[in-house]
Design a protein around this nucleic acid. Structure first.
Lengths: 102, 102
DNA sequence: CAAACTAGTTTGTTATACAAACCATAAAGG
DNA sequence: CCTTTATGGTTTGTATAACAAACTAGTTTG
């Protein structure tokens, strides 16, 4: 039991943050999503979404592809394998916590 | 589904923080605990434990009683009703997220 | 009586999340 | 045209935050 609690300390903070957790949850089921879709779904401002995406990209959890729809810029985001694995691990870790402390 | 994700944004950050989540988990099952016991269980330094406890106390989630064991100071901590309710709500919220995004 | 231990708190640094301002391009209106 | 208005973002600034390290105060031990 104690070890389960201490384990919380080294949970993946990158995914633990609610905004990014929501992003991971969306991206885990959609192949890819564009910036504005993510903004609508999460309710984040553009600024915050941009910086959260930057962090996830730095970590290698997502890949960002900047392209165009016609001549309007379009930013496509998808979860990398590493990102999907991190998300799964996070969920498993948290689920275990909820069960053990049920 | 979107509404479930946006709901993450207003999850209780005070409890969401892993160190405090561990504290809440412990306190939810022990009636009361002293400072050093909490430190051992969580693996936190005294400084961090002290400041996390201060935050939980400010929020009214815990009550701190400073007393003595012989002539050695002893800090006893227990979850308030509000704290217990917040912890339950947090768990319920997160459990729902895990289920919906399963 | 000095060293070391117990039980914490205060202080300082670094990182983080969020909001607001900014920038570039494109379509629309007069 | 050319100047608003909308689209699609990025950069910048600020207030909180977590964490570690230093400090305080009293106590026991050698």
């Amino acid at each position: 039991m104690p070890s389960d609690l201490r384990g919380l300390a080294d949970i993946d903070r990158l995914i633990h943050e609610p905004a990014r957790l929501a992003l991971a949850a969306i991206l885990s089921v959609v192949e890819s999503a564009d910036f504005l879709y993510l903004q609508r779904e999460t309710g984040l401002t553009k600024g915050n979404l941009s910086s959260h995406l930057a962090k996830l990209e730095e970590a290698g959890y997502i890949a960002i592809e900047k392209t165009y729809r016609g001549r309007i810029p379009l930013t496509l985001v998808r979860l990398t394998d590493a990102g999907a694995a991190a998300y799964r691990a996070y969920r498993a870790r948290f689920k275990k916590f909820l069960e053990k402390t049920g």
